[in-house]
C-alpha cells in the first residue's frame, strides 16, 4: 500500500508500490493521449510560439465529455464567444496539461518520490486531471454519486469494470488529498 505524502525538510516525500506506480503512469499516459490536439499546429510561427492557435478555425468544443471537462468553455451562455476564446487558447492549455501529465509520469518512475514545490504542483494538477476523467467515466455528476463510490475501498469490493474504476478513482483521490495536505503544510511552514 502506498504511503501518504509527507512534508519534510527535503521536500514532499511519498512512496508507491511498483504496481500502483505502473497503474498511475498508465492513467497519466491515457490522459495525455486524450489531450493530443486533433488538428495540426498553426503554421504561423509567431502564433505557434505564443501558443496562440491563430489558424485553429477548425477547433470546436470537444465531443468527449471528459475532454470537455478538462478543457471547459471559458464563457457561459454564449457559445460563439466561448468558441472564439477556445480557438485562441485551447492549444496552449492542452500543451500545459500534457506537460504536467508527462512530468508526473516521469516523477513516479522512482520510489520513494521526493518533490520540490514545482514538482508537487505539477503532480497535484496531473492527479486532478486523471480524477476528472475517471469521474466522467463513472458518471459522477453530484456529490451523492461521489459518496456512493467512497465505499469501494478494497479489491474484494470489485466485481466489474465500474467497481474497478471506482477503486482506482478512490485510490487517486486518497493520493491527491495526501499530496495536497502535505503541500498546504509546507506552505504554512514557509510563512
Amino acid at each position: 500500500m502506498a504511503k501518504s505524502f509527507k512534508s519534510t525538510r527535503r521536500g514532499i516525500t511519498g512512496a508507491l508500490e511498483p504496481g500502483e506506480a505502473r497503474l498511475l503512469r498508465a492513467l497519466l499516459d491515457d490522459v495525455v493521449a486524450m489531450l493530443e490536439p486533433e488538428t495540426a499546429a498553426s503554421e504561423d510561427p509567431l502564433a505557434a510560439l505564443v501558443g496562440m492557435s491563430g489558424a485553429d478555425t477548425e477547433v470546436s468544443a470537444p465531443g468527449d465529455s471528459a475532454v470537455r471537462r478538462l478543457l471547459p468553455d471559458a464563457v457561459r451562455g454564449d457559445d460563439d464567444e466561448a468558441l472564439a476564446f477556445r480557438r485562441l487558447t485551447e492549444r496552449s492549455l492542452r500543451e500545459q496539461k500534457m506537460g504536467a501529465l508527462r512530468a508526473s509520469a516521469l516523477l513516479l518512475e522512482t520510489s520513494p518520490v521526493t518533490l520540490n514545490d514545482e514538482q508537487a504542483r505539477l503532480l497535484a494538477q496531473a492527479l486532478n486531471d486523471v480524477r476528472l476523467v475517471l469521474a466522467d467515466r463513472l458518471s459522477i455528476e453530484s456529490e451523492a454519486d461521489a459518496e456512493r463510490l467512497h465505499e469501494i475501498a478494497d479489491s474484494k469490493d470489485v466485481d466489474d469494470v465500474e467497481s474497478y474504476l471506482a477503486l482506482v478513482y478512490n485510490f487517486v483521490t486518497w493520493l491527491q488529498e495526501s499530496l495536497v495536505q502535505a503541500m498546504l503544510k509546507a506552505a504554512r511552514l514557509e510563512r
Binding site: R121, A124, N128, A135, I140, V180, M183, L184, A187
Partner: peptide, 26 residues
C-alpha cells in the same frame, strides 16, 4: 472570474489553488 462547484475537485485542492495562484491567505 467565477469558479463553479463540481463533485470531483477536492476542497483542500481548491483552497490550495486559491492560495497558490492568487496569493490569498488561508
Amino acid at each position: 472570474v467565477v469558479v463553479w462547484n463540481d463533485p470531483v475537485n477536492l476542497m483542500s485542492y481548491v483552497s490550495y489553488v486559491f492560495q497558490s495562484y492568487f496569493g490569498y491567505t488561508e
